[in-house]
Amino acid sequence: MNTPSEQSGQPGPGNTLPNAFHVTQPRTPEEFRARQLRARDMLRGDLEGADLEKFVEEAVVTTTLERALNWARSQTVFPMTFGLACCALEMMSIVSARYDVARFGSEAFRASPRQADLIILSGRVSIKMAPVIRRIYDQMLEPKWVIAMGACSSSGGVFSNYAVVQGADKFLPVDVHVPGCPPRPEALIHGIIKLQHKIKGRPDLGWRERYAADGSEEWPYGRAGAPHDVNLEQLIAERRALGSNGSGSNGLGVNGDARNLPLPEAGDA
């Protein structure tokens, strides 16, 4: 059974992603200098004397691993090929030679939600399509982001009628709204850059709680029964006991939930 690494961080309250790297940013120049000096100790041996001092002054920047990860993530946002309506044409043209979103690391459009980080809602969201979009969103793996492109998916646009959902944030946590009908490709690229700033800035994901939108379909965070909410060892012990005495015999585990299937014994495999 795959579980996220619980040991490296304190368990989150259920609405935040588990923070694997509990290292804080340096707050003062003195702290920053102290870390530089610690880095100098690590480098000693490769360089010596004045060379080492010069290298540390010029080239060593300390940061936290989480920050570095977020920086790397922000430069490789893979959008999903998800065209809804008119805006899809402008979304397609951002990868064309003139606009070239490859400059910002987002040119690799992925057809599968499992491989994508970003879903661009490019067009109007009808009431027939909204459940489909929510399902695709749930299938995406964390970390994941949403850009509502154009007036229709941001607020319903001109289509204030029976068939159109009045804004995609009725059912999805939207990170960036790009105005326009349709927005120019430059505007969409601007939205992607804004999203990169947001990713780098480590946004609080707690506001997603209202959508029950953390995690993915397989691994829902913030939902009752998610493994990281409970004591894992206790859970394993309970389920082993459950499996050995044969209760939960409907084959679906506790409460009919496939996630709660009894774990196999250690010698089973």
């Binding site: 309506a85 109007r124 009808s126 068939a163 159109v164």
Partner: peptide, 11 residues
């Protein structure tokens, strides 16, 4: 079909 039915004719 109907996944981008927008109701334009009604609007």
């Amino acid at each position: 079909v109907g996944y981008v039915h927008t109701g334009i004719e009604k609007n």
